[in-house]
């Protein structure tokens, strides 16, 4: 039986109290929201904590606020709530699509948007039970010194597995972080580092409080799309995902576009070369094909999840093309994923 290790559990009702506990308890304290990532990780002894602080009792963190301009999604809104939210479905349908693709219905009733954005990076050699990992010796992401995926590599290549993150980065979302000593708002994109171990650009005690979606990324101004590949239509994590957000000028050419890939780097990966190539051009078949090739070049799929890395590289091209085609209003060219709106 896989039991959790012992820890102290705190469930504050106020954000300031949660921030104070995190500041006071030091390295041993960490937050939990839905627990759908933290509990499995603690059961497998990947992640450790002496004190776990639940955010679920703090009402102000759960609210979804739509003033018609910027949309504010509370960090502890569950994925089911985000996907069902009228504001999200109406104004940011591509985000609703990405969120609906996550895990399975019961997990979406539990998992939160904030937890999804802070999700641990994943790797076949890491997401295993402790005896399994001990048997081949721990890798660099834990107590060891070697990376089993790329033994001569000085870094860990565990991949960013969140599905909401690439979509929200493409839409230009920002996040509000708060600690006992102050708060800051940063572009979500800047929350991530391309490092499988040290994957978040934030201090341990900073709580992600809300996601802010700009009005300019709403569907009346911006065409968004999300495509995800996995073995089964539910439960499985993405092995490749592609999110696009495009703004067109009056003549129908691309004014601005963001293309962000998931599961092929230790962070959501922006394909800047493709974005630059497409700026000012019409998003036709030829432009899409060129941009998709650049996406494949930028991605570094490793042999650390389902399917062969080389094939996933090929799929990066297909899925990036599908996302771009859909943003351009063309036929996506591949079968729709199993999670229609």
């Amino acid at each position: 039986m896989l039991r959790l290790p012992p820890f102290d559990f705190r469930a504050p009702r106020r954000l300031a109290e949660a921030a104070a506990i995190l500041a006071g308890e030091g390295d041993g304290a960490r937050v939990v929201a839905g627990g759908t990532d933290l509990w499995p990780n603690m059961k497998r002894r990947h992640q450790h904590a002496t004190t776990v602080v639940s955010l679920m009792g703090i009402p102000e963190l759960a609210a979804v606020d739509d003033g018609g301009g910027e949309l504010r999604l509370g960090a502890t809104a569950t994925l089911a709530q985000v996907a069902a939210s009228d504001a999200v479905r109406r104004r940011y349908p591509a985000l609703a699509c990405a969120v609906r693709s996550i895990s399975s219905p019961p997990l979406r009733n539990m998992g939160t948007l904030g937890g999804n954005l802070c999700l641990d990076t994943r790797c076949t050699y890491y997401n295993q039970t402790e005896p399994w990992r001990r048997a081949i010796d721990f890798c660099m992401k834990e107590a060891g010194t070697v990376c089993w995926v790329a033994p001569s590599s000085p870094r860990c290549w565990a991949h960013a597995a969140s599905d909401a993150a690439p979509m929200l980065c493409a839409l230009g979302a920002r996040v509000l972080l708060r600690a006992h000593d102050g708060e800051r708002v940063v572009p979500l994109e800047e929350l991530y580092r391309d490092d499988g171990i040290d994957y978040l650009n934030k201090r341990r005690e900073e709580i992600l409080c809300a996601v802010l979606l700009p009005a300019e990324a709403a569907v009346e101004h911006c065409a968004g799309s999300f495509w995800k590949l996995r073995r089964r239509g539910a439960i499985d994590f993405a092995v490749v995902s592609a999110a696009a957000a495009a703004w067109f000028d009056a003549g129908g050419a691309v004014e601005r576009l963001r293309l962000v890939l998931g599961a092929v780097a230790s962070r959501p990966l922006r394909v800047v070369a493709a974005e630059e190539l497409l700026a000012g051009r019409r998003l036709d078949e030829e432009a899409v094909a060129e941009a998709a090739r650049l996406a494949r070049k930028a991605a570094t799929p490793m042999d650390n999840t389902d399917f062969q890395a080389q094939w996933r590289g090929l799929m990066v091209e297909r899925y990036a093309a599908a996302a771009l085609r859909q943003a351009a209003g063309l036929e996506p060219g591949i079968r729709p994923p199993h999670h229609p709106l």
């Binding site: 290790p5 012992p6 820890f7 390295d27 041993g28 990947h46 992640q47 450790h48 904590a49 002496t50 992401k141 834990e142 107590a143 171990i197 040290d198 994957y199 978040l200 650009n201 934030k202 201090r203 341990r204």
Partner: peptide
């Protein structure tokens, strides 16, 4: 933010 190595349950 990386995983602390010194946390015992």
């Amino acid at each position: 933010m990386s995983e602390p190595r010194n946390v015992e349950p």
